[in-house]
């Protein structure tokens, strides 16, 4: 049974279409990265999963239950770290956690939870005085109350320094090992890369790719960029390079000596030999792999991928 099933989900706000016939599944026990630029519809999707918002059309089921009709039962077994929300300024970390524990009828020790997220020193301080990172840690602790079967983390790294982000990923791994499914949204690829089994990329309310990190990397055309410095270049030779089967694109950087930038998926030697066949002298060349950021860029913008 999948942990989350989204079926032909459409959500519009007046004239604006936020989600357009979105379908995907999150399998039980996996860490699923939900990736997309700001405004792609990630929060809208999460809002519908948690019944904060209602679908225009389509169905969502969570832990095998209808997201609308059985929202309370779903939320009983789900831990949520919502994005961009304030805590209760006048309440302490302990009071926040006691409220969550009471609400979930759970048997968790607030102190141990705060130790886990590294906030135990501030347990009796009011949340109004917390930094963004401290608030995020407290919210993560609240999400962990009652060992939930499903964790929904919306942009969990917000406000965390690199060290905090690493600790957060460590907790995600621990929770996953315990058996929890983790649904993890972010607009930064490198944050999901390290922990996610699979990644779904959302763009303008549509899922443009769902795959493992490796699979995504492979799927992007122009995984490698070849830079060739030559003594001269002519249109004829450039056309010949472009027409090679493995080549995605070839451009000339205007300088002396000229440099040809070629995105290539397979054999690099074919490019070099094509140039040499036309009497062009290859003085130097280098290759670069596309970074995951470029992969993400390629799915979420119209720009083509060029490795640096």
């Amino acid at each position: 049974m999948p942990a989350i099933t989204v079926d032909n989900l459409t959500k519009s706000f007046g004239q604006t279409l936020a989600l357009d016939d979105l379908s995907f599944q999150v399998e039980e026990g996996e860490v699923f990265g939900f990736l997309g630029p700001n405004g792609a519809g990630k929060s809208t999707t999460i809002n519908i999963v948690l019944d904060f918002a209602r679908p225009t059309t389509g169905d969502v089921s969570v832990l095998g239950m209808d997201a609308q009709r059985h929202s309370r039962a779903i939320r009983h077994r789900t831990g949520v770290l919502p994005e961009g929300v304030d805590l209760y300024d006048r309440l302490t970390a302990r009071q926040h956690l006691e409220f969550a524990i009471e609400s979930k009828n759970a048997d968790t020790d607030p102190e141990r939870l705060l130790e886990r997220v590294g906030l135990v020193d501030a347990i009796d301080k009011k949340a109004g005085g917390y930094s963004k990172g401290m608030a995020q840690r407290l919210m993560l602790a609240m999400a962990l109350v009652g060992d939930p079967d499903l964790l929904i983390l919306d942009e969990p790294s917000t406000g965390l320094d690199p060290n905090g982000a690493r600790e957060m990923r460590q907790i995600v791994r621990e929770e996953n090992e315990r058996g929890a499914t983790v649904f993890f949204s972010s607009h930064i690829m490198e944050q999901v890369e390290a922990v996610c089994d699979r990644v779904g990329i959302l763009r303008d309310g549509e899922m443009v790719a769902v795959d493992s990190v490796e699979g995504l990397r492979d799927s992007v055309e122009g995984g490698t960029t070849l830079r060739v410095t030559v003594d001269r270049i002519d249109d004829d030779a450039l056309q010949a390079v472009r027409s090679l089967p493995d080549v995605g694109d070839a451009t000339v950087e205007d300088r002396t000596p000229p440099t040809i930038v070629v995105t290539v998926d397979g054999s690099k030697t074919a490019v070099l030999s094509t140039l040499e066949d036309r009497g062009i002298e290859v003085r130097d060349f280098s290759t670069t792999e596309a970074s995951l950021d470029d992969v993400f860029q390629s799915y979420t913008t119209d720009a083509e991928v060029h490795a640096r």
């Binding site: 904060f52 939320r75 789900t78 919502p82 209760y88 979930k104 609240m142």
Partner: peptide, 14 residues
């Protein structure tokens, strides 16, 4: 306005 209602409603409350 502050979004803290999501903290309330993330927990099993109607």
């Amino acid at each position: 306005e502050t979004g803290s209602i999501k903290v309330l409603l993330s927990l099993p409350h109607s």
